[in-house]
Design a protein around this nucleic acid. Structure first.
Length: 548
RNA sequence: GCACCCGUAGCUCAACUGGAUAGAGCAUCUGACUACGAAUCAGAAGGUUAGGGGUUCGACUCCCUUCGGGUGUACCA
């Protein structure tokens, strides 16, 4: 639409003045409305190459420009050499018709067609309940996956977990201690690094009910019972929480399978063959300094024979590349920041293209209440879990709060604000716009007023209507950009603008009470607005209610 | 010490990745409901983009530097 009617004429004009490579032509949406609907800086970019002042070039371009009737109402040279374009009535009519036709698919593009993407998120080990940080991880990962789907990518949502190792052992020991306590041995020592959450006692209690005191012998076998019961319980709890968050993943990838299938071993062999791994002090090291001089060599297999986390991480990412993904997105908390260069270098050392891997680092979340920080401690088990948050606020508010800020800024989660069902809470602003539209349709139905009829978009020429249409028309572009930048927050900002334009339109323009033909056109505009809000909220994983 | 992230209105954050006059919400002050939902709208006020240099037609954005805040820096994950 925009390409055929606006961009193509520009490309032709450029060719007419002798510019062959038109790929540098881009358009911006001016911040200031007086500068039109679209703006290009092409003349400035060409100034050096052509050796002429920007405004002269702009003038030459403009002389060659020609648009179809009514598509563009006005264009001009402004400032240092910008070319500004203002859409005409015909453009809005065509755009609206197209949006209406695409309906629930409006906003989808095909820019990612044929590309396979893996988005790995949540990835919590089954040692406890999801906490606030996991919440941000989950909301970001799921929304990014949605965005990639809406731009035509084939998306696999993946959960990576480790159900072996120290942490799991710790979980088993913690449950065992609580089990002994339950059995009356109140002096049984609790492990120093044990998990203190109340859920540990719950698991122990369940085991005691099933086994009474038959697990009191501290053997390998009984410890395994505690371990596997703990894992099962934690996973079930995690899945329940994710379900509430409206999250469904496709692949659950067990780190242990990297060992059983020999993939870890193969990494060591291949690194060795490439001369990038060596033995020292009884351990195996990876020669990161040979791959990137800023890095230092690291241990990948300890002298005890156990691997460090780097080794399976490298094997895992190799596996993802070998599964044929064109883009691999990891969602990590800021505490993982140091490991990323190591893993990337390791992947590169195996001769693979590490640029396929994009790691999104999100900064920490702090909970505040009445302006004061809520302390979160894993040790004491008093931490706010994600479940607690959802219970108190609802999944919509929780998801929204986790993505309404850019990924790499610290997120202040204001509990008192989130709790408020009022205009101070930004999630309601979007949902309210949707509910209001539904309500207008219901109102019309109640009065037996037709919302259909012949639609003549040329009747829509109120400034508020145009502003709304302009916003609606940018939806596919907004998704494309957010998807490309992997920034969910951009969709939040966009939807806020749509909702704002809609509310203004609502106040300025009567709908049900408008004259019949105008009414039909306005109802159509309402319908498209509802589609955009609905689709946008769907991307954010938030419900679009008809009533609130 | 080193690496990464952040510093924008009183507060919480935007700014289409280098564009024109830096924008929203809250808080403060004015106005708009016997209207289709006031969970809304219209308006006022609020800024040396932490400080200083540089790069260029043009910088909140890129580079250097100083100052503040956060995170990480293991043969822990």
């Amino acid at each position: 639409m925009m390409y055929d009617y606006i961009i193509k004429p520009f490309e032709k004009a450029l060719q007419a003045i002798g510019v062959e490579d038109v790929s540098i032509l881009t358009f911006d949406i001016p911040k200031v409305a007086a500068h039109g609907d679209l703006s290009t800086n092409i003349a400035m970019l060409l100034a050096k190459k052509l050796g002429k002042p920007p405004r002269t070039i702009a003038q030459e371009i403009i002389e060659k420009l020609s648009f179809k009737d009514g598509i563009v109402s006005h264009f001009e040279i402004a400032g240092a050499g910008f070319i500004n374009v203002r859409f005409g009535a015909k453009y809005y009519e065509l755009a609206l018709a197209e949006m209406g036709e695409q309906h629930n698919d409006y906003g989808r593009t095909t820019s990612g067609k044929g590309l396979k993407v893996n988005v790995e998120y949540v990835s919590a080990n089954p040692t406890g309940l999801l906490h606030i940080g996991h919440g941000r991880n989950t909301a970001i990962g799921d929304t990014v996956a949605n965005l990639l789907e809406w731009t035509g990518h084939e998306v696999t949502r993946e959960y990576y977990f480790n159900n072996a190792g120290n942490q799991m052992n710790n979980l088993a020991l913690s449950i065992r201690a609580r089990y002994h306590h339950k059995a009356g041995e109140s002096n049984y020592p609790f492990p120093e690094d044990g998990y203190h959450g109340t859920y540990i006692q719950l698991i122990a209690d369940e085991l005691f009910e099933q086994h009474t005191d038959s697990l009191l012998d501290d053997t390998k076998e009984t410890l395994e019972v505690f371990r596997s019961a703990g894992e099962k319980w934690c996973f079930a709890a995690i899945m329940r929480t994710l379900d509430k968050m409206n999250v469904k993943q496709d692949v659950y990838y067990n780190e242990d399978s990297l060992y059983t299938t020999g993939k870890v071993k193969k990494v060591i062999e291949d690194l060795g063959a490439a001369g990038l791994a060596y033995d020292k002090d009884g351990a195996i090291w990876i020669a990161l300094s040979k791959i990137d001089e800023k890095l230092t060599d690291r241990v990948i297999v300890k002298s005890s024979g156990e691997p460090t986390y780097r080794l399976p991480d490298i094997a895992y990412h190799r596996d993802k590349i070998e599964r044929g993904f064109d883009l691999i997105v990891d969602i990590f908390g800021a505490d993982h920041i140091a490991t990323i260069p190591d893993v990337m270098a390791g992947v590169k050392a195996l001769g693979l293209d590490s640029s396929k891997i994009k790691v999104l680092i999100y900064q920490f979340v702090t909970l505040t209440e009445n302006g004061e920080q809520v302390k979160m401690s894993k040790r004491t088990g008093k931490s706010y879990t994600l479940d607690d948050l959802i219970e108190e606020l609802g999944a919509d508010v929780v998801r929204f709060f986790f993505i309404m800020r850019g990924i790499n800024t610290h997120l202040e989660f204001d509990l008192s604000l989130a709790r408020e069902q009022s205009d101070r809470n930004p999630v309601f602003y979007l949902q309210y716009a949707h509910a209001r539209i539904s309500s207008i349709f219901a109102n019309a139905a109640g009065k037996e007023i037709s919302t259909l009829g012949n639609v003549d978009f040329s009747l829509l020429n109120h400034a508020a209507e145009w502003q709304l249409i302009r916003a609606l028309q940018r939806f596919p572009e907004a998704i494309k950009r957010a998807s490309h930048q992997l920034e969910p927050q951009m969709i939040v900002e966009y939807l806020r603008e749509v909702a704002s334009s809609f509310h203004t339109f609502y106040h300025e323009c009567p709908i049900v009470r408008a004259e019949e033909n105008l009414r039909s056109a306005r109802f159509k505009l309402l319908e498209i607005t509802r589609i955009v809000l609905n689709n946008g909220l769907k991307i954010l994983g938030i419900s679009a209610p008809d009533k609130m």
